[in-house]
Write a protein that binds this DNA or RNA. Structure first.
Lengths: 110, 110
DNA sequence: GGTTAATACATAAGAGAATTATGCATAAGA
DNA sequence: TCTTATGCATAATTCTCTTATGTATTAACC
């Protein structure tokens, strides 16, 4: 598990990007996907994830559909057009940030 | 200027690394060095920098010497042996984090 | 000679983003 | 049957940083 401080500020970027790649996901699925992609190094906590999803929905970046599997409810999230723009922006920002950090730390990243 | 949230958790790493590279620096000098290396994209605030320096000193990672230039006091910081270990650890952590993020975001970084 | 900007340190109050804790409920596996 | 996994949600707390404030010296401009 990574030192969690570094993760701060990356949650939105992560959520938006995996949603873009997968198309349509529910909360728990997102945590598992990120866990897998990160080799168990990034474990999203529910206390951070759900408020983030709600916020992005409220801002019009995500839309939801509810599905009932058996008696269990799943809330699927997908990107709105605005959300699509935001992903690009966030990912670009992150890449630019890494580039800058590479200069400051004088290391090759990637 | 980068979105400041991404910067969270990187302050110690940045401070330690520039100190390692320069050998001996005072607070204001660190802010200017980072400003230069980052092309004005990372502007360390004093409210964050000084408490961090004090903390690292209290933990035995940094040592200080005070110098008086004219009537102005400068507090020079340099790494202790423990501090040297910490830099390596922090930089490695950061590189590992970036690698992980590359996988999660499915992008080439660096 | 006077004003502004830069240099140089420091700390306190407040904001923001996450962790931790808690709560509820269903389904699967041992 | 009991534990683990699945699935959502929110409140309290913690941590880190920004913003604001305070003090003081030096250089640059007009």
């Amino acid at each position: 598990m990574h030192s969690p401080e570094l993760l701060k500020g990356t949650l939105q970027t992560i959520v938006l990007k995996v949603l873009k790649d997968q198309g349509r996901m529910y909360g728990y699925e997102i945590t598992q996907r990120v866990k897998d992609l990160s080799d168990d190094r990034i474990l999203l906590t529910e206390g951070a994830l759900y408020p983030t999803l709600h916020k992005l929905e409220a801002e019009g970046m995500l839309r939801t559909e509810t599905e009932t599997i058996g008696k269990r409810v799943r809330k699927y999230y997908s990107l709105t057009p605005q959300g699509r723009s935001l992903v690009k922006e966030r990912v670009s920002e992150f890449i630019a940030f890494i580039k800058t950090m590479g200069n400051v730390l004088q290391v090759e990243l990637g």
